[in-house]
Deep mutational scan, measured.
Amino acid sequence: CHSECLGNCSQPDDPTKCVACRNFYLDGRCVETCPPPYYHFQDWRCVNFSFCQDLHHKCKNSRRQGCHQYVIHNNKCIPECPSGYTMNSSNLLCTPCLGPCPKVCHLLEGEKTIDSVTSAQELRGCTVINGSLIINIRGGNNLAAELEANLGLIEEISGYLKIRRSYALVSLSFFRKLRLIRGETLEIGNYSFYALDNQNLRQLWDWSKHNLTITQGKLFFHYNPKLCLSEIHKMEEVSGTKGRQERNDIALKTNGDQASCENELLKFSYIRTSFDKILLRWEPYWPPDFRDLLGFMLFYKEAPYQNVTEFDGQDACGSNSWTVVDIDPPLRSNDPKSQNHPGWLMRGLKPWTQYAIFVKTLVTFSDERRTYGAKSDIIYVQTDATNPSVPLDPISVSNSSSQIILKWKPPSDPNGNITHYLVFWERQAEDSELFELDYCLKGLKLPSRTWSPPFESEDSQKHNQSEYEDSAGECCSCPKTDSQILKELEESSFRKTFEDYLHNVVFVPRKT
């Protein structure tokens, strides 16, 4: 048989008469490798580009789960590009990614509803959504962080984005990388972005840091009482949809009607710091009717980097990364020049730590249904340095008659930039024990000054392991946590139920 035959053949030295091919099969003959313009397919066939392209389009058009959109890589027609490569849609070739590779997620039936953290986790790592997304989240724990972890990498949506009755959302900033909504599939009414009845939605994105392009379709905003109209108009300008909307697409009466839409800028007039305090004062603000001013709200939190936005980490279910302080308005003076500047002394802060701070007014709604208010920009203030805590785990070892090696770990709280350490030492008198000992005694162990690591005695271990207080009263049991108490109650309830079950099964009433 021919060298490319495997198993047997019907005619000697003829690659077209093989029972099976050793390498690849091409047009009725066995070959060692697939010549151009053919590609290896499933490690035994040679196919042309049209064959591989037909497989790709067949799966793409069917949208069946589990099928493969075949691509070409290293002269092979394979189910998908290997790690580190992405497909070129024009020629199906796998090309190296520039940075992290995109991950295209194809949605069944063309859309997916995100109504819980669990459903959001199914899209973790996706960068391109081939379909439409509907966000409908009523509640949950730590929602802002969970949504950002699972949806934060999405850069492109081919269909539309719909935010509907998501009472738990305060902001859409968890879509931190969303840059493009194509609108290839539109919501009824030709809408590519749809926001309806979101009672706590206050911000779409921080438009000073976020760009969003909507290729096709219109915007729809109705019944978002805490979303200011200025935020919607800003989205029109940034996304390129200005002029597409009709009169009733953006409701003037049901958007922002319960919001404090600040239209003035508060400026800080005085800032002073110490290692654990920050004193702030800002310019006074009074609405047209000074009785509408209820006070100020001061927001602050630790910020290692200057990239904080107002609604980071917030949701309507209680999660809030900001510390909020309510401040009463100052006494009002008739003389504008003698107006008191409101302020606040922030206490209990960490030394040498940068804080993000902003302040906003708290006002009631005027009778004319106009909203007044003022808010400052987010500023960054760093507390002063102070003395560091003591170095940890000092170790001293003498390696000769004239040297001592000293080692330690950095302090747990540096409280500033540590530039150097101060080492103090003092000579001590020799131990009298060394002169009084009889060095001729056998088995004498000389006193040693070398360091030995501390260890816990058996008594201390027994005390720590004991669940009861000892007789001397030195140790006591740790208080039980809520989960331990709940577990004990469940076990007790189970024992009672099981005992009742045994009584009912074992003891049967005697027939009379």
Rank of each mutant, 00 (worst) to 15 (best):
E148R: 11
E368A: 05
S376K: 01
N307K: 10
V363I: 15
N334E: 02
W322M: 03
G140A: 09
Y270S: 06
V238I: 15
L266W: 01
R124Q: 03
A316T: 03
A144P: 03
R369C: 07
N150G: 06
D292C: 04
G189N: 07
N198S: 05
D384P: 12
L108I: 05
L294N: 13
R244F: 06
L298N: 00
L392I: 13
T118I: 05
K267A: 08
L172M: 08
D367L: 07
R176A: 03
Q382I: 11
R202K: 06
T215I: 13
R179S: 09
E237P: 02
K112H: 15
T127G: 14
G217N: 01
Y300A: 09
G243P: 02
G243E: 14
S208T: 09
E122Y: 07
E146R: 15
A385K: 13
F193S: 00
D249A: 05
K267Q: 12
E264L: 11
R179P: 00
G183T: 01
N198V: 01
W352Q: 04
K234T: 10
N334C: 10
H341E: 10
K112V: 08
P388A: 05
A356R: 01
E237T: 14
E231G: 13
N399Y: 04
E283N: 14
N320W: 14
E283L: 07
V238E: 04
K350D: 05
F193T: 02
P351A: 10
N307G: 10
M235Y: 15
L178S: 00
F268M: 04
P330N: 09
R165A: 04
V324K: 01
D393V: 04
Q258W: 09
R291I: 10
S208A: 05
G373P: 04
G139Q: 15
G110W: 06
G125L: 14
L161H: 00
A195S: 09
L266I: 09
Y194C: 14
S376D: 00
P329T: 14
S173R: 08
I134T: 03
R164F: 14
T364S: 12
S396I: 00
T185P: 10
Q382W: 09
V324W: 07
I137F: 03
G313M: 15
G373Y: 10
V359M: 04
R247T: 11
D377W: 15
S333K: 14
T353Y: 06
V325G: 03
R138Q: 06
S396W: 03
P329L: 14
D312L: 05
T215W: 02
R176L: 08
D377F: 03
W322D: 01
D257Q: 02
I404C: 07
C261V: 02
C317L: 06
R124F: 03
Y191K: 03
W205V: 03
E264G: 06
I114Q: 00
K162G: 12
L204M: 06
N255F: 09
A316N: 13
A149S: 06
Q314F: 09
P391A: 01
F175T: 01
R347W: 10
K226F: 06
D328K: 15
M297S: 07
N248C: 08
T127D: 09
Y285S: 04
L108G: 14
E310V: 06
S274W: 03
T118W: 12
T361H: 03
N399M: 10
A120N: 01
A195E: 00
K267E: 02
K253L: 08
N320P: 03
L293V: 04
D115S: 12
L345K: 03
S274R: 09
R272W: 05
I214Q: 05
R291W: 14
G189E: 03
M297H: 13
D335N: 13
S338N: 07
L172Y: 02
L180R: 11
S208Y: 12
K253E: 11
T353M: 02
P388F: 01
P287F: 08
I327L: 04
R164T: 15
F290Q: 07
A120F: 05
T254S: 07
F311M: 13
Q216T: 11
A145T: 11
P287C: 02
Q339I: 08
Q403G: 07
Y194P: 01
W282R: 00
F311I: 06
I404M: 05
F296A: 11
A168L: 11
G125M: 08
A145W: 12
T273W: 04
G159R: 01
I327T: 03
S274N: 00
L153R: 10
G159K: 01
M346V: 08
T273V: 03
D249K: 04
V170Y: 14
L280E: 03
G343R: 07
L172W: 00
F275M: 07
E236F: 03
G131F: 02
T323V: 12
R124V: 14
F175P: 00
S319F: 07
K407V: 13
H341W: 13
Y194I: 11
I327F: 05
Q354V: 05
G243R: 12
V104C: 14
K253G: 07
T323K: 13
R179M: 07
F365L: 14
P288T: 08
V117T: 04
T254V: 07
W282V: 07
T273G: 15
L362P: 07
I232T: 10
T371D: 04
L151N: 00
N263T: 09
Q121G: 01
L252H: 10
D326N: 11
G217D: 04
T185C: 00
V238P: 13
G140D: 13
I327S: 03
I114Y: 04
